[in-house]
Design a protein around this nucleic acid. Structure first.
Length: 971
DNA sequence: CGCTCCTAACC
DNA sequence: AGGTTAGGAGCGA
């Protein structure tokens, strides 16, 4: 070290506590390990490293070290046993982080210095002295006043949080003395937090005054007799020795033995890979990204580090929400990857013994089980209901599992399996009896709602909904189905149902519902199945759910998907449960009137069709229709279906109609009416409840892209295209005094495409509110945007949509009914005008081939293992899907984020609007008449800002919103 | 009764 | 051409 060199000394221990207290408590890694302080520490350290790399500031370090306290006992305790005696133990969740923080320093490639028996401050003092003697400059990164004594012409103290550098003048300004008097000042003032006694009655102001006057502490103590103020004089005399002791306590030892010589603190360029690897393992995604960018490292290439965090306690004691699971269990050296691997093995070696399951028939036994649940801090939980729909079903029983193999069933709504005994009240008691529902729920409710007890379900929204019917808000929750979905969406592993997951991960086939209750004519309600059998079935489900959770949950962390699950999946569960419970009001009369109208038109069409065909046949049978059209009438047949039948879809029939054939036209009309009647006007009323409301069921795990789906009934495909179809929407109404509000994203997928593929023309058009399809047409065909030919615009629109779908000449040709060659030319033209699109497509395909999956902007993955298939059709299909998934999936993520936030935002604004439906880019609310305008403002704001702050889209999101008496008018 | 196929409704 | 769910026909058990 020489003149001109610059040593940075970071007070690591002070850093830790600052980081710990600056961050929200309970910041944890997905496997439950608390890492808040590590996170704060790394962020601060990185900021420092980054700043110091900026040589323009002129303080770039040549040498660097991070210094820690080794232990709490030092030579000072020998001087004064009370020294730092009232220091509290570090918080429980901070302790396991100390080791990780030292790992962090090493990952930064910085020396990590500590020495037994010495405080960090003494080591800092020693290195400072050495550096100054060698002629170098020193920056001490700390805001601890104990270090002020070291400040001098070559030494500054840097408070990173306040971004303030303290030299001698600043110290003087702050404490009234120059640094060389700091020790004396501290000795007089003392320090309550460290138990340095000082002199009573003397604070910083008086102390600096006295030192100004007398020069030094010693001089002051010697001349204390002459002090005018009585009390002050007496105290200085009486506590002179205490002041001298204090001085020794606060004086830093500049001569501690050191193990690493000053020269070895020479700074290294951080090793990007090493650092990124550590940060990835800690799941600090933002910092990982930042570091990777600065150090020019490809984060996706780097494997996360295996951390040695022996003895780090985890589990429900620390965090019932994220915990590893088993109370008191200590996970040793558990890297997420290693834990996931261990658990995967544990899962496959599962031996499931149904005979050990327990039937709970009395309050005492139930209380005992709940007591054990409390100890564990978690349980797998499953409800059995009389119907498959949670909204309609009555509670028949609940099951829980607290350890693999330890599970119980609590029957609540069983009836006698023997039909003859149904009327005999003693029959069930004779079979062993069951608890009264109310009594059982009173015992269960506090557990099911206990924020410290994690309830694990498989498709837990169902159980949430069932319990909601009984006034119980199930929370907190985890869902094995959603964990599986976040991990393995699409991927060719098919679905995320329990039976499938169990076979895949546990190698075990659970009893199926059909096996339990029979099918068809032999089917009987679960409530009428023998309790012993249901115990085996239901307790097994809970057992399997718990085992699946133990296998799958650690994978989230190991595979970097914890945030997707925690931010986009889990929080949506209660939101959807509430939406489903509310349901949307439907006007039965409107539907019935429409049914009548459709019937009449249908009958008229049927007569015409029979007449034209020359015989009666079923126009609803594609087989019969094909034979009539292409056989009997000899019309020019176009396509054949996969199975060799004549294709008779609307496209084929419309082409025939265009050639002047009337029969196909009638069939198209007949089909449309039949569809509207059969699927909507006839079917919807059967889904209405007594209040006239329809409760759909949203599935969170059935699409490959992150979209929701809706079933029983599907309310995401209510007609809108044709006038007759739209009439059905008028039947979706708001009750008296309320309106339906529809808020939908305008062109969200194209906007996301513009952002992801970074297409300047598209982005400009969206920023300036220009008609995007007209702009596309203008770019492609060189015509002005204003007054564009509608047919030209239509072509451009088809191409824009085609792009989102992973365009092919074949598909575009079919869409526009133009020759494939012409479609190919359009696509070529498009790529010429928007070269970024082709780049995006190529990059996405390459990424998918390399990784087997693609990601949305929010990290959701969709797997496409078949993208490397040798069959060109299979491969091309997977390529198109892989191109589409990030776009469709990002849009799905955005609206999920909006849904998760919007209810709370409405409540905070004191608005009573209730969200009822989601239709991919649209949200439907029920709103009080006089709250419409304010609700629109809130909903729009939440939806338009939903990507942030995680993703900063380079195009604005726009939301159209309108309220009216029914869905048709609101849309 | 349960499965596959075809068609069609939506974004 | 990407992502869905529903209903009827047809067919085999």
């Amino acid at each position: 070290m020489k003149k001109g060199d610059h040593l940075f000394l970071v007070d690591g221990s002070a850093y830790i506590f600052r980081a710990y207290h600056a961050l929200p408590p309970l910041t944890r890694k997905s496997d439950g390990l608390p890492v808040g302080a590590v996170s704060g520490f790394c962020n601060m350290l990185w900021k420092l490293v980054e700043e110091s790399r900026d040589t323009s500031v002129g303080v770039a370090p040549t040498h660097f070290a991070v210094i820690f306290d080794y232990s709490s006992t030092t030579f000072r305790n020998a001087l004064y046993s009370e020294y730092k005696a009232n220091r509290e133990e570090p918080p429980e969740d901070l302790r396991p982080q100390f080791g990780l923080i030292r790992d962090a320093v090493r990952a930064f490639d910085l020396p990590c210095i500590e020495k037994e028996g010495f405080e960090a401050d003494d080591l800092i003092a020693t290195y400072t002295r050495l550096a100054v003697e060698a002629g170098g400059d020193v920056t001490i990164v700390s805001s601890d006043k104990d270090l002020m004594q070291l400040v001098g012409p070559q030494v500054v103290l840097y408070d990173q949080m306040k971004d303030k550098r303290l030299g001698p003048e600043e110290v003087k300004e702050k404490f009234g003395v120059y640094p060389d008097k700091m020790i004396d000042l501290q000795a007089l003032v003392g320090d309550t937090s460290d138990n340095v006694p000082g002199v009573p009655g003397i604070g910083p102001k008086t102390a600096s005054q006295l030192l100004e006057e007398y020069g030094t502490l010693e001089a002051l103590l010697e001349q204390a007799e002459g002090i005018k103020q009585k009390k002050r004089r007496e105290n200085l005399i009486e506590f002179a020795d205490q002041a001298r002791l204090s001085k020794r306590l606060v004086t830093l030892d500049e001569n501690t033995p050191i193990d690493i010589p000053l020269e070895d603190l020479f700074i290294n360029e951080p090793d990007g890979e090493k650092l990124v690897s550590f940060l990835k393992a800690m799941e600090f995604t933002t910092l990982t990204r930042r570091v990777a960018a600065t150090l020019d490292t490809d984060a996706s290439e780097v494997k996360s580090a295996e951390l040695d965090i022996e003895g780090a306690p985890r589990g429900p004691d620390l965090d019932p929400f994220e915990g590893d699971g088993v109370s008191g269990e200590t996970v040793f050296a558990a890297t997420p990857q290693r834990l996931a691997a261990t658990r995967a093995e544990e899962g496959q070696s599962a031996e499931i013994d149904r005979s050990s399951y327990v039937t709970i028939r009395d309050a005492e036994t139930l209380k005992t089980w709940m007591g054990r649940v409390r100890e564990k801090g978690l349980m797998a939980f499953d409800t059995e209901t009389s119907e498959l729909s949670a909204m309609k079903g009555e509670l028949v029983g609940v099951s829980f599992a607290i350890e693999p193999g330890e599970a119980a069933y609590l029957p609540l709504g069983h009836v006698s399996p023997d039909a003859d005994l149904l009327s005999d009240p003693g029959a069930l008691e004779a079979l062993g009896g069951q608890m009264k529902l109310g009594e059982a729920l009173d015992i269960l409710k506090p557990v099911l709602e206990d924020p410290a007890i994690l309830k694990i379900g498989q498709n837990v929204k169902y159980d949430c909904l069932v319990m909601l019917q009984h006034g119980i808000v199930l929370a907190p929750i985890d869902d094995t189905m959603l964990i599986s979905y976040a991990l393995d969406a699409s991927s060719g592993l098919t679905g995320h149902g329990m039976d499938e997951l169990s076979e895949r991960w546990l190698g075990h086939k659970p009893i199926t519902f059909k096996e339990l209750c029979g099918t068809g004519r032999n089917a009987r309600p679960i409530a009428a199945v023998e309790i012993e059998k249901v115990t085996e079935y239901a307790a097994e489900d809970a057992d399997v759910t718990l085992r699946l959770w133990r296998v799958l949950k650690p994978r989230l962390a190991a595979e970097g998907l914890a945030k997707v699950y925690e931010r986009l999946e889990r929080p949506l569960v209660p939101v959807l449960a509430r939406m489903e419970q509310r349901g949307i009001m439907v006007d039965r009369q409107i539907l019935s009137r429409l049914s009548g109208q459709f019937s009449q038109k249908q009958a008229a069409l049927e007569a015409e069709i029979a007449e034209m065909a020359g015989e009666e046949f079923n126009p609803g049978s594609p087989k019969q229709l094909g034979e009539i059209l292409f056989g009997k009438l000899g019309l020019p047949g176009g396509k054949k279906t996969r199975t060799g039948q004549w294709s008779t879809d609307a496209r084929v029939l419309e082409d025939l109609a265009a050639e002047g054939h009337d029969l196909p036209r009638r069939v198209v009309d007949w089909r449309q009416l039949t569809k509207l009647k059969g699927t909507y006007t006839d079917a919807l009323p059967s889904h209405m409840d007594a209040e006239g409301r329809i409760h759909t069921s949203f599935s969170m795990a059935s699409t490959t892209t992150g979209r929701l789906s809706s079933s029983e009934p599907n309310l995401q495909n209510i007609p809108v295209r044709t006038e007759e179809g739209r009439a059905i929407r008028t039947a979706f109404v708001a009750p008296k005094g309320k309106k339906l509000l529809s808020a939908d994203y305008s062109q969200i997928e194209l906007r996301i495409l513009a952002h992801i593929a970074d297409i300047p023309q598209l982005k400009d058009a969206f920023r300036n509110g220009i008609d995007i399809h007209a702009m596309t047409a203008s770019e492609m065909f060189g015509v002005p945007v204003e007054g564009i030919d509608p047919m030209v615009r239509r072509r451009a629109k088809a191409i824009n949509f085609g792009i989102i779908y992973g365009i092919s000449a074949f598909g575009l040709a079919a869409q526009l009914t133009i020759p494939r060659e012409e479609a190919g030319l359009y696509i070529k033209r498009y790529f010429e005008r928007f070269p970024g699109i082709r780049d995006y497509m190529d990059e996405t395909k390459a990424y998918a081939k390399k990784h087997g999956y693609v990601e949305t902007l929010f990290g959701r993955r969709a797997h496409y293992p078949d993208i490397t298939a040798s069959n060109p059709q299979v491969r091309a299909f997977n390529e198109r899907a892989a191109i589409n998934a990030p776009i469709q999936g990002t849009a799905a993520d955005v609206i999920r984020r909006a849904m998760i936030r919007v209810e709370d935002a409405l409540q905070k604004a004191d608005l009573s609007a209730k969200m009822l439906l989601q239709v991919h880019d649209e949200l439907i609310f029920e709103v009080e008449d006089d709250e419409v305008d304010r609700t629109i403002a809130i909903v729009r704001e939440i939806m338009e800002d939903a990507a942030g702050p995680r993703v900063n889209l380079s195009v604005p999101l726009e939301v159209d919103a309108k309220a009216a008496a029914n869905w048709e008018e609101a849309h």
